[in-house]
Amino acid sequence: MIQQHTISNKHLKLVTINYGATVQKLFFKDRNNQETNVVIGFKNPDDYMNNPAYIGNSIGRYAGRIKEGFYIDESFYPLHNEHGVHLHGGQTGFSSKIWEIEDIHDGEVPYIKYSYLSKDGEEGYPGNLKVTVTYKLEENLFSIVYEAETDRSTHVNLTNHNYYNLDGKGSVIDHSLKVNTAHFLEFNSDKLPSGKVLNVADTPYNFTKESKLSDIKHFNGVDNCFPVETDQCVASLYSESSGIEMKVKTNQPAIVIYTPLNLPKGNYNQEIADFSSICFEAQGYPDAPNQVDFPSTLLKKDEKYMNRSIFEFDIRS
């Protein structure tokens, strides 16, 4: 049964559902003190059962793409794939599961915690994997923490798939973006990484200086993976219209930034237009199990996985 939950403090209000441990709404007040929902979602929780764009979902066991499968200790584990590419955990990844409610806490620092047990062999992955996600509000900070433990070596790469729009409607084409990294991953025609890490200079992926998306010549969207090169703010987004600024920090080695031209037709909780939103998916590198030079995503028995990301909201003066 799909259930909806709400937590709030004096700065933020968060609405989640247990299907896919999904963020449905996140409210912050704009410069005119108007409550603004800064994430795109569906009006009705049941609508998330048909969600090909993974809107608001928790993604796992592996966010992003893997080529066919992987080896662990000379054993090959084939994964569910389409045309040789395994995407976002497979045919029915964590985004399509009912998560259990572990804890809900109100007060000045409210949080909600969900859990899911992924059994050995699910979608081809080895090991029983216990996963939790904790959504917490602390002053003007929204944090997402994924944790996981396994009874057998397996690959784990979790992320949240929120679609942000700091105006609460329309397009992000007039939002300004800055990404504090000088590199991006080269992809092949299957959107799998070639293994090369390239410099952003003289490419469409250079956001080292804050740029309004509408000012970028021939802007055609962003869909790439950027290595994280700072433990401070890795990316920031600003809307001159609402005055809202969002800064992103993470302990992960990479962040996928994605601005879809169109979203699938749906009963959304806000009006949307072309380039309606932008995703900041903090995670490991795609296809890391098959790329020896990428940071490892292997989780062993008695180890603990933790993905911590913080989204800081302010009004820019």
Rank of each mutant, 00 (worst) to 15 (best):
I310L: 14
T132I: 08
E68D: 13
D167K: 10
Y62A: 05
Y164M: 09
K249I: 01
S194N: 14
P289T: 03
T250P: 00
E108A: 15
N262G: 07
L87C: 09
D167E: 15
I112Y: 04
G195D: 02
N18I: 09
W99T: 09
Y135C: 07
N199D: 12
L213I: 12
V200M: 02
I7F: 10
E139C: 08
K217M: 07
H5N: 11
T6K: 14
I272W: 10
H218L: 08
D287Q: 15
V38E: 04
N81P: 10
L177H: 01
H80E: 13
Y163D: 03
S276P: 12
S211R: 13
K196L: 12
Q91K: 14
G168Y: 03
Q283C: 10
S239Q: 05
L198K: 11
L213N: 01
G41F: 04
A21G: 15
E123Y: 05
K43D: 13
S8M: 13
M246G: 03
D190Q: 15
I112F: 09
G60Y: 03
V38K: 02
S189H: 14
N160P: 02
D103R: 12
N33L: 10
N160M: 03
T36N: 12
G41V: 06
A235P: 07
R316T: 11
S189K: 12
F27L: 04
K217T: 11
L185Y: 00
L198G: 04
E102M: 10
F275D: 00
S118D: 15
T259I: 14
D293F: 06
R65V: 04
P289W: 00
N251V: 00
K113M: 06
R61S: 01
N18Q: 04
Y71K: 10
N267Q: 06
T16D: 08
P295Q: 11
Q232N: 15
E229V: 08
Q91S: 14
N290C: 05
D46T: 12
S277Y: 01
G170D: 06
F294M: 10
I2Q: 12
F187M: 15
F275K: 05
T208G: 06
P253S: 08
S153I: 05
